[in-house]
C-alpha cells in the first residue's frame, strides 16, 4: 500500500536537496538516495529524513533500503537524463508509484515518458526560457 506521506528523492544535487529539505520541513517521511555520500552535505542540518547511499539503478537498494513499493511520491532528479528516464519507467511500470516527477535536461526525452501512468516531466531549459521571457516582458513594460 502506498503511503501518501512518503517521498523518495533520487539524486541529491541542488534541486534534489532543495525538494528534500522542503518536504521534510512539511512533515513528510523523506528518503534521499545518492551514490555520492558528499551529496548529502547539501541537506539542512535539521533534515529529519533517511539518507541512502546507493546506486539508484540498483533495484535491490530501491526495494530493500527505500521500500519503494510503499512510496506515495518519487522525485527523480539525478544529473543523468538516461538514468532519470529508466527510473521513471521503473517507478511507473514496475512499482506503480502514484506520483512520479522526473527532470530532463534534454526536452526531447519528454516524449518518451508520454503515456506512462502517473509520470510528469519537468525541463529546466523550458522553465528558464519562460522565466527569461517574463523578465523581458517586465523590462518592456
Amino acid at each position: 500500500m502506498a503511503n501518501k506521506n512518503k517521498t523518495i528523492v533520487i539524486g541529491v544535487g541542488r534541486l534534489g536537496s532543495g525538494i528534500a529539505n522542503r518536504a521534510a520541513a512539511k512533515g513528510q517521511d523523506v528518503i534521499v538516495v545518492d551514490p555520492n555520500p558528499k551529496a548529502f552535505y547539501g541537506l539542512d542540518d535539521t533534515f529529519s529524513g533517511f539518507k541512502v547511499n546507493a546506486d539508484s539503478t540498483d533495484m535491490f537498494a530501491l526495494e530493500e533500503h527505500c521500500d519503494i513499493k510503499t512510496a506515495g511520491q518519487v522525485v527523480i532528479v539525478t544529473g543523468d537524463d538516461n538514468v532519470n528516464l529508466f527510473l521513471a519507467y521503473v517507478c511507473s511500470l514496475v512499482y506503480a508509484v502514484p506520483r512520479v516527477t522526473v527532470r530532463f535536461d534534454d526536452p526531447d526525452k519528454g516524449a518518451l515518458v508520454e503515456g506512462l501512468p502517473n509520470v510528469k516531466a519537468i525541463y529546466p531549459f523550458d522553465l528558464t526560457l519562460v522565466k527569461y521571457n517574463e523578465l523581458e516582458q517586465d523590462e518592456r513594460k
Partner: peptide, 16 residues
C-alpha cells in the same frame, strides 16, 4: 557501456 544508456538509445530508436 552503461545499461541505462542502452535503455535510452533503444527506447528512442523504437519510439521516435
Amino acid at each position: 557501456k552503461k545499461d541505462t544508456d542502452n535503455f535510452a538509445s533503444c527506447l528512442i530508436a523504437k519510439r521516435n
